[in-house]
Amino acid sequence: MLNMTNIKKIYRTDSIETHALREFNLQVDEGDFVAVTGPSGSGKTTFLNIAGLLETFDEGCFELDGVDISNQNDTARSRLRNQKIGFIFQSFNLIPDLNLFDNVDVPLRYRGFNRQERKKRIEQSLEMVGLAKRMRHLPAQLSGGQQQRVAIARALAGEPRFLLADEPTGNLDSSMAQSVMSLLKEINTNGTTIIMVTHDTELAAQAKRNIYVRDGKVSEITHSDQYAGDASELLEDDTESTLSPVAALSR
């Protein structure tokens, strides 16, 4: 589904070349939940940017959902991002002048959905994160956890194949962080592939796979046993698992 082979990314200034990624190889299958960890400057964000089609790469091969990315121009990459990828950012990146409804509406308009379809999706996704009643509020009127839930609603409204999360809990306290993590696991259980970059090893351990990046390369891949248990619990009691993270975040 996501296949990176020997990806190389070099940042150049007049005097310095920085090899952000070198021979970066990774395969992510459908339904996977991958946590990417590593020290600062290891290349995690560069990987996420390239995986999210936010940046180009210098060498290697990258296929996303069967599409060879190296052949895509800026407009095509924008379309792919819009159709296949949902983003969750550390700072939420909500547009401060737009209310929650309009924030979630942003990617749907670029997608070309008509008014009725957009309204239905916005209401469903805000309902899913427990903020449907506050859709006319501005982001500044919400807590950090609530803002991140709006960002998740925005990411999911277009029903993307991938969810790319960049330190999604980095600006939240531990309680909120765990609630967001539970929500992500629930989303993954429902079939969305997730790649999450994080510094938090405890949260990373809750993903299905852990990728450790060092010096621009994947240096270690581990599989989490804990995730399977959590996921099966979620699957056994779907109603509770759906509501519990939302309820936690609402507090």
Partner: peptide, 16 residues
Amino acid sequence: KKQIGTRRALGASQQA
């Protein structure tokens, strides 16, 4: 700038 980058990330083309 950040908002524009976010819009681009969410699928806005340069024309948009």
